[in-house]
Nucleic acid binder design. Structure first.
Lengths: 143, 143
DNA sequence: TCCGCTTTCCTGAATGAGTCAAGATTGGGG
DNA sequence: CCCCAATCTTGACTCATTCAGGAAAGCGGA
């Protein structure tokens, strides 16, 4: 996995310093889409055993602010992160087990972006979350 | 405000016991759309000064499970509740101050419900959150 | 109207994701 | 190679939400 050069480029391109914690976090998030902070900390520590949880939190915030990762947080879930950004995709969340999957919106680029009455808000993004049951949960307990 | 009979009916119709905490919570949520739990506790205690926060949490869970209130929780926010349900409306959230407003979806009843690839999920709801800046924040700090 | 069985509520403590703060390290331009 | 600002470490802390056990209150039936 010699993707480190790419990841460094991403960081540098966003005007951020290239540090090992950030590289590890970026790598972990891209390898574990929709992972929560705890899983990310675990994955990062497999590379760098001594990173503090704080460094991971800081990195995630910085990377999110820089637009390199996206943070999602469905109702009832902790924060989750992914690196697939800028392609206008959405998420399906299982009400039963919390599993998350990506969904490309059928409508096109900007779904429902023309809200009927925006109340004067300047809208820049429409986030869509589909709720339902994942394959295993829907067969395991149809009720 | 003699809406108590109505509220009692709602509870009874959902097969729930009619208790004063529940009536007060239902009343508070309908009077303060998008309020967080703390505000709801405050409003409830104006009617019933001695309700425990636990009773409010329990009531909110029960009412949510019964479909009498809806829980929303935009990324970075605590849980918020509203009584406007079953009419397929969505929300605009201000990135700066967190203000929330209702939005009737322009598309019709079920926006984007036909996701291109559902990954085998059985979808029953599409939740849409528009992100942007509210009128005051967009004029106060255009940047 | 009263009983009794549950459900619901209260008190008080615990959990856990996320944040704050201060000092030590480190990246990278000069 | 140096130096300073940005970043990381450590450790304490916040606060929304949950857990637990006993008390109180709904409500269907007598």
């Amino acid at each position: 996995m010699t993707t480190t050069p790419d990841l460094s480029e991403q960081l540098r391109g966003a005007g951020l310093r290239v540090t090992r914690p950030r590289l590890a976090v970026l790598d972990a998030v891209s390898g574990l889409p929709h992972a929560d902070t705890d899983s990310i900390i675990g994955a990062v520590r497999r590379e760098l055993p001594s990173v503090s949880h704080q460094a991971v939190y800081d990195s995630l915030h910085t990377l999110t602010a820089a637009g390199l990762v996206r943070r999602i947080q469905p109702t009832g879930s902790v924060a989750r992160y992914e690196t697939r950004i800028g392609d206008n995709h959405h998420h399906v969340v299982c009400r039963s087990c919390g599993a998350i999957a990506d969904v490309d919106c059928a409508v096109g680029e900007a779904p429902c972006l023309d809200a009927s009455d925006q109340h004067g808000f300047v809208i820049d993004e429409a986030e869509v979350i589909y709720w339902g049951l994942c394959p295993s949960c829907s067969t395991a307990r149809p009720q």
